[in-house]
Design a protein around this nucleic acid. Structure first.
Length: 431
RNA sequence: GGAGGGAUGGCAGAGCGGUUGAAUGCGACGGUCUUGAAAACCGUUGAGGCGCAAGUCUCCGGGGGUUCGAAUCCCUCUCCCUCCGCCA
């Protein structure tokens, strides 16, 4: 959520930012917010004046009654004021609710240095690591390798749960578990994150806090009778850990790493990535979430991205990192990097981590603040923290990348050295 | 699932429907005293909206209601606790 004061004072700037984000009705949205905000403040002034009068009158009633005098006249008069207040309050609540819901639909604005662009084709590559493997045979896609090794079972996954579900078995199941443990170990032991194991079901409020509701409800699975949602990412429960809290400046930065399964309906993805485990309804992911002071958030974004990249380096997987242009930045971010792993069979890099700074966008929605210290070290007024998050990494896609990058001509797959201890020393997966 | 009890400021804990945004204690911060510290004493100490400001309004788990007036009464939701049932 954006600061209403910013919209009020710089509406044209906001409209321009929304246009860069390719938001078609951005200007109309801003105008509607301005209109509602104006109306809200007008009502507020009027109703507050009436309430003041009522408060004074009520105290007058109290005085009269105490001294045993008659108060019926003033009570009658105040009753009318009360009715007027009820009417205005009702209208005020309506306007307030409308304003709130509009505000929740307005995307975040981008940081000033983000490249302007229409879509992902205008993202800017900012780094590249590792040598793309050369094969003296035609590299096979991970779904073929996985089935041949009898570690991925698509058919039975579909039987049990439908399309875009799969089953891991044997070494496959263990590899998945190994990756999760490995990633969490690196982030906690080397990168200083605190491990969190959150609930996989969250309430609507939590989804609103991170920006997954009200606009993107179709993307997630909802449990209708219970107002619960299956987490689309650990970002949702972990960010909401500190909802409605005021943190001490000394606690920041707070860095959490959490594994969860992630559930996504992929409603708009019909026909895309239908094969393999790149795009499925349930996948595992280790997520990093940071709560930081505003001055440090862009430096924290850089280190967050590095923390994700280092996992790939330790796993010997080639990747590149792109900075998202305004058109690809999405709803919540001010600035974001995608880390993309090399997938030989697709002959391309595919997103395996997305690292974003949201500045105060989520903090404002979820009311997560901290108490800054002034020059003399005294605690001041609460301010919103900046929140960032990034995948570290998408486990299923890492699994696929390992199969494809380390495949041998005979169908076996080499296990990267860093992962071997997590697989009982296994060096190669063989048929 | 059934039966009860509860939710108040950073924490603990009062609060006959009428100067209660809220006693008191602890904590924190500032000061006095001290070579320094402790103790003692004094003072300060919630959040938000509108407003240039003075100020004003709102908030005692959330929402709604009764009333001239609600932390206090009523309804409802959420969460927590105790007992029973069920259960990995």
């Amino acid at each position: 959520m954006l600061d209403i004061k910013l919209i009020r004072t710089q509406p044209d700037f906001i409209k321009e930012c929304l246009a860069h984000k390719q938001i078609a009705d951005g200007a109309a949205l801003v105008d509607e917010v301005l209109r509602l905000d104006e109306r809200r403040r007008t009502l507020l002034v009027e109703v507050e004046q009436l309430k003041r009068t009522r408060n004074e009158d009520s105290q007058q009633v109290a005085r009269l009654k105490r001294s045993g005098e008659d108060a019926t006249e003033i009570i009658t008069r105040t009753r009318e004021i009360g009715d007027r207040i009820s009417t205005l309050d009702a209208e005020s609540r309506g306007v307030e609710a409308a304003l709130e819901s509009k505000l929740l639909e307005i995307p975040n604005i981008h940081a000033p240095d983000v490249p302007i662009g229409a879509d992902e084709s205008e993202n800017v590559e900012v780094g590249r690591w590792g040598d793309v493997p050369q094969f003296d045979f035609e590299p096979r896609p991970h779904w073929e390798i996985g089935e041949a090794l009898n570690i991925i079972d698509f058919e039975r996954g579909a039987k049990i749960s439908g399309s875009r579900f799969y089953v891991l078995r044997g070494v496959g199941a263990r590899l998945e578990r190994a990756l999760i443990a490995f990633m969490l170990d690196v982030h906690t032991a080397r990168h200083g994150y605190t491990e969190i194991f959150p609930p996989f079901l969250v309430r609507s409020e939590s989804m609103v806090g991170t920006g997954n509701l009200p606009k993107f409800g179709e993307d997630s699975y909802n449990i209708p009778g219970d107002d619960l949602w299956l987490v689309p990412t650990a970002e949702v429960p972990v960010t909401n850990l500190h909802r409605d809290e005021i943190l001490d400046a000394g606690e920041l930065p707070i860095k959490y790493a959490a594994y969860t399964a992630c559930f996504r309906r992929e409603a708009g993805a019909a026909g895309r990535d239908t094969r393999g485990i790149i795009r499925v309804h349930q996948f595992n992911k280790v997520e990093m979430v940071k709560f930081v002071t505003p001055e440090t958030s862009y430096a924290e974004l850089d280190s967050l991205r590095r923390d994700a990249e280092e996992i790939l380096e330790l796993l010997e997987l080639p990747y590149r990192t792109v900075e998202l242009c305004t058109g690809d930045l999405g709803f919540k971010g001010t600035k974001a990097y995608d880390v993309e792993v090399w997938l030989p069979a697709q002959d391309t890099y595919r997103e395996i981590s997305s690292c974003s700074n949201f500045e105060a966008f989520q903090a404002r929605r979820a009311s997560i603040r901290y108490r800054p210290l002034d020059a003399g070290g005294k605690p001041g007024k609460p301010e919103f923290v900046h929140i960032l998050n990034g995948s570290g990494l998408a486990v299923g896609r890492t699994f696929a990348a390992i199969l494809e990058n380390f495949q041998n001509a005979d169908g076996s797959v080499r296990i990267p050295r860093a992962l071997q201890p997590y697989l009982g020393g296994l060096e190669v997966i063989e048929v």
